[in-house]
Design a protein around this nucleic acid. Structure first.
Length: 111
DNA sequence: ATTCTGACGTGGG
DNA sequence: CCCCACGCCAGAA
């Protein structure tokens, strides 16, 4: 894309996050890597912060590489993120996703 | 323009 | 196992 590829880094993240299947989760690093910014995993998380206003972006399905709901603190409630995940059939114990490895949806692998 | 921070990740002690 | 420091890049003060 000659020049249209200059989409905001955020939007790129959104596109990937929006494709996360129901009941699945992914990590910031995985998304960053898919975007070619593996060294900027933080930016993914930062992008989510902006996505906070978008309903199209299920940020609750994005966790850190350990499967921990690190960003739950940013959600409206304290356990909103966990509730959303559990409502999708994702077990969460101690802010950590159970079987995270099995539920992990890697964009590079799936796409 | 400069400085700090941040929902990460990796590595080292 | 826990704690600390560095890298990375973008946005806000």
């Amino acid at each position: 894309m000659a020049t249209s590829d200059n989409e905001n880094f955020f939007e790129r993240v959104y596109v990937v996050v929006r494709q996360i299947p129901y009941g699945r989760v992914t990590s910031y690093g995985a998304i960053a890597k898919y975007l070619g910014a593996a060294r900027s995993a933080r930016m993914v998380g930062w992008a989510m912060n902006a996505a906070h206003n978008l309903d199209d972006v299920p940020a609750h399905r994005v966790v850190n590489r350990l499967g921990v709901l690190t960003g739950k603190h940013h959600f409206d409630g304290t356990n909103l993120m966990q509730q959303l995940l559990e409502s999708e059939g994702v077990e969460v114990v101690d802010n950590q996703i159970v079987k995270f490895k099995e539920l992990l949806w890697d964009p590079m692998k799936e796409l």
